[in-house]
């Protein structure tokens, strides 16, 4: 896509907004629509847009394949780990009441951490799946579509 100057410029211009919007959706999920799943997808879309315009190899340099696998594992581990931590604190599995000074505060913390786990897992998984697909296909010329 080297000759698509407009696409390249606009993509670079859009990237920070996409990533910041993903973070907004992640942390604002308690108050508005959204949450970890949507945030993870939007965050991954930032990388996928970069890959579509600048090529898969550029994204692989940016975030190595091993890192995406690590992220998706880490996300699930954060979620399950929250459950284990609540067990250790003497509550039921995934009952976050023990995380704060009082149960309500604990619930807020628990939901925040669990949503972060979902976001990291989804973002890692989506980038990994896309990279796997895109790495198989040779670069396609515009006219081939």
């Amino acid at each position: 896509m080297n000759h698509h100057l407009v696409l390249r410029v606009i993509a670079k211009f859009l990237l920070p907004f996409i990533l910041v919007f993903a973070l907004y959706v992640q942390w604002h999920g308690d108050y508005g629509p959204g949450g970890g799943f949507q945030a993870g997808v939007i965050f991954a879309v930032g990388f996928i847009l970069y890959a579509l315009v600048f090529g898969v190899e550029a994204v692989k340099k940016l975030i190595p394949v091993r890192a995406t696998v690590g992220l998706m594992s880490a996300g699930v581990l954060i979620y399950a780990g929250t459950g284990i931590a609540s067990l250790i604190l003497g509550y039921d599995f995934l009952d976050y009441s023990g995380f704060g000074s009082d149960p309500v505060h604990g619930q807020e913390w628990g939901i925040l951490i669990v949503e972060l786990g979902v976001g990291i897992a989804v973002a890692g998984a989506m980038v990994a799946i896309f990279t796997a697909f895109a790495s198989r296909a040779p670069e396609i010329e515009d006219k081939d579509w």
Binding site: G29, G32, L94, Q107, E108, G110, I111
Partner: peptide
């Protein structure tokens, strides 16, 4: 839970098991 978005409260707290399952499915 102190979370105004009930969808988030149900998803992440009351139905935390289900969401853990969904995350594992994506993984």
């Amino acid at each position: 839970t102190g979370v105004p978005n009930i969808v988030t409260a149900v998803l992440a707290s009351y139905r935390g098991y289900d969401t853990l399952g969904e995350t594992t499915v994506i993984f």
